[in-house]
């Protein structure tokens, strides 16, 4: 697996972009204020699957990818900008550029984080 220690922390410091992090099971453990402001999610997202912010038709792929990662510890989508639809809390959709990184911690195992750059709507950048 191609990953750099500190990659999650460096994404977290991008205050100008929405940031979200999930644990090794793909459950959301944190996100920044920008993420809440752009996509409308509140703290009720914590503990829920990351699939919540993906279109329904992508969720199966997402879960399969996560399951595959547990076995192979490799992924096509990590460290690449991905253009994906992102689901907002109200169900609307914003096309966004996701940049996902993965990091392994000796105690907690794998952790996944992403910045999301909205490509349309009032927050487009």
């Amino acid at each position: 697996m191609d990953w750099t220690p500190g990659s999650v922390a460096s994404l977290r410091e991008r205050y100008d972009l929405p940031f979200v992090r999930a644990d090794r099971e793909g459950l959301v453990v944190e996100f920044n204020d920008r993420f809440g402001a752009v996509y409308g999610w509140d703290s009720s997202l914590i503990g829920k699957t990351l699939g919540m912010i993906l279109p329904e038709q992508f969720r199966e792929l997402h879960h399969a990818g996560f399951a595959r990662f547990q076995i192979t510890e490799s992924s096509q989508v990590v460290n690449h900008p991905l253009e994906l639809a992102t689901i907002c809390a109200d169900g609307s959709v914003i096309r966004s550029e996701h940049f996902i990184v993965a990091e392994k911690d000796s105690s907690e195992g794998w952790s996944f984080a992403a910045t999301l750059r909205p490509l349309e709507g009032p927050h487009a950048c």
Binding site: L61, Q76, V77, L82, E83, E97, F99
Partner: peptide, 17 residues
């Protein structure tokens, strides 16, 4: 179609970047 989605998302994201 499922298999094409991931490479297309990467391609599209990379070109935009």
């Amino acid at each position: 179609a499922h298999e094409l989605r991931t490479p297309l998302a990467i391609l599209s994201g990379s070109l935009r970047r």
